[in-house]
Amino acid sequence: MTTLTMTTLDPRSRAARRGLSDLSIRNLFIIPTIIFLIVFNIFPLLYSLGYSFTDFRASSNAPANFVGLDNYRTLLNDPFIWSNFAITAKYVIVSVTGQVIVGFGVALLLNREIPFKGLITTLLLLPMMLSMAVVGLFWKLLYDPSFGIINYAFGLGRFEWLSNPDMALYAVALTDIWMWSPFVMLLSLAGLSAVPKHLYEAAAIDRAGPIYTFFRITLPLVAPILMIAIIFRTMEAFKTFDLAYILTSQPTTEVISIRLYKMAFQEWQTGMSCALAYIVLIMVIAITNIYVKYLNKVKER
């Protein structure tokens, strides 16, 4: 099939004079990518699958013993792991919901004729372009109970954002919302501007109110692209590590990837952590699949 859709090489082109055929050019582009993928993605993936069935520790010279499904059994029976998953779920729900509400809301505000629209959009996109580590570090300063600007601005006195175990996870989620709402906004804007203007005019002529128009026209048409934004953000939030790790070290913010990091590189339970990584991978794939199924249903409607 690919050969059918491939355009043929112009016989007068420089590539043709050097004796390159269509096929060799195609290989030139594809083979390095495939090699790269195999070396850095596929090989480690399979290798770690092997380790997940052993008691291997990367810190010792002891040979790895095959233990079968023991690692999985231990992990799935460990209440601490489940509490890590619960924390992660809470974090995903709070942060993705927040991002969708803020991002879509801002997109609605921006989707009209306003002065300096381009400039405002670009400025709003800035948080997304920063490095996670940088964002984590300066939000730590912003949250600081004694000199942080957030407490100062909202007159919260010495409110402990990050050292309060009940608040810390929300503080991390808030930072994530600040950082990634622009992403949802960007995709929503693309979706909103793709809604044909004449539909709104037709709705106005049909005497539909603004709320009715929003729920009957805008939302159904933007839903598929909004779903894509949600899929991306859910996947990212599920495997979030750097923000939570930099901002705080509360047990209540120990999301699954921090647990995984500690298990692998502080406790050196390499085999066990490989198993955990696989459990996480399967979960992410499962969640994404549910979303994609739903997305297809939304598209069909």
Partner: peptide, 14 residues
């Protein structure tokens, strides 16, 4: 309270 029929049909999709 007017009705407008456009050249592009502007039916509500979905």
């Amino acid at each position: 309270d007017v009705a407008l029929v456009l050249q592009q049909y502007s039916l509500y999709p979905r």
